[in-house]
Amino acid sequence: MQLLEVRKLHFNPAVPPVLDGVSLRIEPGQTVGLCGPGASGKSLLLKILCGLVRPEGGRVEIDGLDLCTCSSAALRAVQSRIGMLFQNNALFDSMTVADNVSFPLRQRAIQQGIRLDEAYVRQLVHERLRAVGLADHADKLPSQLSGGQRKRVALARAVMTRPELIIYDEPTAGLDPVTTARIYDLLRRERDETGATVIIVSSDVEALMSFAPRMVMLYRGCLRYDGPTDAMANSPDPVVRQFVRGELEGPL
C-alpha cells in the first residue's frame, strides 16, 4: 500500500456523529493514533477508510483509487489488503476460534479460485493463535472466551492475511490494565514484524500515545490536531491540551 489520503471528507447523517472537512495523509508504514471525545466521529472515519460507509463528500484515496466512487469489485480488492479489528470484535458466533481466524484466508482462496492445503491452514492458524497466547482455545466458540481472549482472537483474525493497512478500533476497550498491556505488546510485535501501516483509535490516550508516534485528534467531526505525539500535550489549542491532560477545567 503506497499512500492513504483523505481529502475534505464530509458526512452528515441523520444521527450523529458527523464529519466535516476532514483531510489526512498517511504515508506507508506509519502508525497513527486517532483520538477524541465520544461521538467525535473516530469510528465513523475508520469505517469510511475501509469502505464500509460511503461519505457524502470528499475523497478517500488508497494508492490513487478513490474508495467513494470506485466499483464494488475494485473496493473489495482494496479491502482485501486491509485488516480491521472492530470495537465489538465482530467475531462470528457460530464459528469456532480456529474457523474465525482461518475465515479470511479461506474466503480469499475461494475468491481467487485457489485450493488451500488443509494441513497448511491448520498450521498457520495454530501459529497465529500461539502468537496471541490462545493455542489451546482453537475449538472453543467466541461465547466461551473472556473479553480479553475475544479481543486477541479478533486481532489474530485481523492480521491473518498479513494486510498492508491495519485498522484497530478500540483494541483495549473494557479490558484490565494487564490485558491492555498484553494487547499493546501484541500490536507492537505485529507492527514490527510486518511493517504495515497502522491506524488505531483508543480512549486510553496514555497507552495510545506510547504506541503511536503521530497523533490525530477529532472534535465534533473536525480535525483538531495532526502532528507528533510529543508535541500534543503542549499544543496551542486549549481543546487538545485539556483532552490530552485530562483536565476538568477548559473548553471541553
Binding site: K47, C50, G51, L52, S72, R76, A77, Q79, S80, I82, M84, F86, Q87, N88, A90, L91, F92, D93, F103, P104, Q107, R108, Q111
Partner: peptide, 18 residues
Amino acid sequence: GTMTVTEQIDGLRALAID
C-alpha cells in the same frame, strides 16, 4: 439482527466478502 448490531456483517464486508 444480532450479526448486524455486533458488527459481524460489517466484519464480513471489511474482509472483502459481499
